[in-house]
Simulated scan of single mutants.
Amino acid sequence: MTKIQQKINQIKKELEVDFTALALSEINPTTHVRDIRWQYVAGNTNQHYTRIRLQVGKGIGGIVWRTGRGYQATNLQKQPEKLVELPITRMEKLETVIAYPVWQAEEVKGVLLLGYRSITEVPESFLTAAKEKAEELAEYL
């Protein structure tokens, strides 16, 4: 198990969420377009996440990548348009998600996604802790 995977497992346990994932990107050698993929996960119910390929601005990973800001949404399973736009929420049956960019040298290098399979009220203290975890991940990239 890699150090990054160990850290993702640790974050899931410490923050007591149902699902944790880290998206990283690479330039597709054929299309020369940046592909964003959920590469490290904990708490997944299946392997469908491995097929998700996002582009900058698309999906949770792509939105956070483009804006460089956190993302938060809840009650997702009752919003069909969100389930289409955010495939990870559909595949993992997530109701509440929080995502933060992982910065390195003033550039987004990854996206940390935290999710609950139930509708969850997220306190400010949790958002602060989640953002700190995203900052901690930078040293692993």
Results as ranks from 00 to 15, higher is better:
T45C: 08
R37M: 12
G61F: 10
N75Q: 10
G70A: 04
K58S: 07
T30V: 13
R37A: 09
Q55C: 02
E14C: 04
R90L: 08
L54N: 13
D18E: 07
R34S: 08
Q79E: 02
V41C: 09
L83E: 08
I36F: 06
V97C: 15
T50W: 02
L76R: 07
I60D: 12
Y116V: 04
Q47L: 05
H32C: 01
R51Q: 11
Y49E: 01
F19L: 06
V97D: 14
Y40W: 11
G43Q: 06
I98W: 13
T30Q: 09
Y116S: 14
R34I: 12
W103T: 05
N46M: 06
T20Q: 05
Q10H: 12
G110P: 13
N44I: 00
R66A: 07
K82F: 06
A73K: 14
R69L: 01
K93A: 04
K82N: 12
Y49F: 14
T74C: 05
K109L: 08
V108M: 11
G59E: 05
L94M: 12
T89I: 04
L83D: 02
L112D: 04
Q10R: 06
Q39I: 02
A23Q: 10
H48S: 07
E92D: 11
Y116D: 12
T96L: 09
R69G: 00
G110D: 07
E106T: 03
V17I: 09
P101Q: 05
N46Y: 05
V17P: 01
K78P: 01
D35L: 12
V17R: 03
V56I: 13
T31N: 06
T30P: 00
G62Y: 06
V64A: 02
G59F: 05
Y116R: 11
M91H: 10
E95F: 09
V111A: 05
L94N: 13
I27Y: 01
Q55P: 01
E14F: 09
Y116F: 15
R34D: 03
T67G: 00
L112K: 07
L86M: 14
L86R: 03
A23N: 09
I36K: 13
Q77P: 00
E16Q: 14
A99E: 09
T120K: 15
H48Y: 11
I52K: 01
G110W: 14
L94T: 14
R117F: 12
K7T: 03
N46D: 08
D35W: 15
D35M: 13
Q39A: 02
Y40V: 06
L113V: 15
P29R: 10
L113D: 13
E26I: 03
Y40G: 01
K93F: 10
Q72S: 12
V97W: 15
A42W: 06
R51F: 04
E14K: 10
I27V: 13
A23C: 12
L112H: 13
T89Q: 09
